[in-house]
Amino acid sequence: MYFELLENIAQNNGMRDISPYTKLLLGLGCILIVITSPGYIVPLFIAITLSVCILGIGKIPVRLYLTLLSIPLGFAIASVIVIVLVTGGGMTVFSLQVTNWLSLSVTVESLNEGFFVFCRIFGGMCALFFISLTTPMTDLFSVMKRCYIPMVLIDLAMLIYRFIFIFMEKAELIYRAQVMRLGYSTYREAIHTSGDLAGALFLASWNAGEDLIKAMDCRCYSGQFALLSKETPLQIRSVLLICIFLGFCCTLEVITADYTIIPVSI
């Protein structure tokens, strides 16, 4: 399924051997800059540079990346339309009084705001995809351990991570069996069958999980997973390069703070 795919890509991407700290520094730094940016130029700039990084250095297929990006951006466009209609200020371009408490209007400022929010989502999404496409979850677990996140939390996270895959496996098995026995032939039948699927799925994965923990207990599981992580040393050059890039973005943020897509003063 979809997220299995993302994990697979992350395990085999071109930046697999770069230290996860370096990648997180770039990804999280960009998210921080994007959400604090007062203008639309920096988020757009970050979106484009990170996309080039993901495609060029990470060697993610272009078509796949575009498909991945199109889903959240579709959602983003729908939400931006609402913001444009609801917020206001400046010259009115179009206005519609729906009921006495709600009026929808498109103004210069709301268009600017809408475009700005869209760029911020675009930039944020690219930064998020940068992290999820280049850094496998297993690497993130060892980073979390190093950052003194409570062990019980990481433990539960790893368990849920494993359970999600058990779930998917069982879901596919049960679903196929149901389809073969004509479980989804009519609408009524389908509702009944999907209820059964949910219940059976929960119990099946619960049992599988119990077995998993019993098996681990036999191997002296003490409530802490032993993590074997490949230690990749931090490369000073790439860290410096990222710092320069982030610094450049901050400067750009200050310079382009007042830029809007439609000039306000007309």
Partner: peptide, 9 residues
């Protein structure tokens, strides 16, 4: 992280 569903900030 898996589905780009939600976000970190």
């Amino acid at each position: 992280l898996f589905l780009a569903h939600g976000g970190l900030s």
